[in-house]
């Protein structure tokens, strides 16, 4: 790892100031991706601003029809939360399947969302539930937030403070994990809520995406059978040593049906 200057932020405002003053600064949330990337010299920031001591960025609360989760809340805390398990069990299930126990004890919601790894789990939940990313400056709809591979709508100096998830009528998340890394080869999040049906896919493309043809079919009939005749175009999907684009397209259909079954409690 190349050397860098370390800063511990005492508050959100302090973090913004320190990040703004750095030549090529990065925020350190849990660091479960960033530290590994720095060790491999894939990332070499001049400064790290550690958000670990900012209590206001942690926590889970029910706010009317929404579940609001602080950016520095760990995957383990989301998975264990009675509020999350009660209001959006599919979200708790998703958090429980990220990485392994030790990674979940440190890795955070905000870090995962800001990194926007093409195979990360959380982007599927945000888009699949129609969530809103909250920063210290504004609120960004999930549909507008994830822009492409490792690219988001965040501007320089912008810090995610939390995510607001609308509580759906029902939702499901199933992933086909890479057996070594546990990242999604394909993961599908489906939900039915006040704004309709959403289907979000992670792992299959350069970034999380919705499948309008599946959403239409499920709006007519929220059942696995409704998806049987909906094919997914492989041309824009990822192909690599783990799975070809055609295989991923097939998996999207299979996994989406399983996610619907899970949402229906079957």
């Amino acid at each position: 790892m190349y050397t860098f200057t370390y800063h511990k932020a005492s508050s959100l405002a302090d973090a913004a100031t320190k990040l703004g003053a750095a030549a090529d600064g990065k925020l350190l949330a849990g660091g479960q991706t960033l530290i590994a990337a720095m060790k491999l010299r894939l990332a070499a920031p001049s400064d790290l601003v550690d958000l670990g001591a900012i209590a206001e960025l942690r926590g889970i609360k029910v706010d009317g029809g929404n579940l609001v989760i602080g950016a520095m809340t760990t995957h383990a805390a989301v998975a264990a939360s009675a509020d999350v398990r009660g209001k959006i069990p599919a979200l708790a299930h998703l958090a429980e399947g990220i990485g392994d126990r030790m990674v979940r004890n440190v890795g955070t919601l905000g870090g995962s969302v800001a990194n926007n790894d093409p195979a990360a789990d959380y982007p599927a939940a945000l888009v699949g539930l129609g969530a809103t990313v909250i920063t210290q400056k504004r609120r960004i709809a999930a549909d507008d937030f994830f822009r492409g591979m490792y690219e988001t709508a965040l501007e320089a100096g912008e810090i995610i403070t939390g995510v607001s998830f609308p509580i759906p009528k029902r939702a499901g998340y199933v992933k086909f994990p890479n057996p070594a890394s546990r990242y999604a080869i394909v993961g599908v999040f489906v939900s039915e809520g006040s704004t309709g049906v959403r289907v979000a896919v992670t792992g299959a493309g350069p970034s999380v995406f919705r499948v309008p043809s599946m959403e239409k079919a499920l709006s007519a009939s929220f059942s696995a059978e409704a998806l049987k005749s909906v094919a997914v175009d492989a041309s824009a999907l990822n192909g690599d040593m783990h799975a070809s684009a055609e295989y991923r397209a097939h998996l999207v259909s299979v996994i989406a049906r399983r996610a619907v079954e899970q949402a229906l409690g079957r």
Partner: peptide, 8 residues
């Protein structure tokens, strides 16, 4: 439990 090789 945490992985000490992946934390500063």
């Amino acid at each position: 439990a945490v992985k000490a090789c992946n934390l500063l």
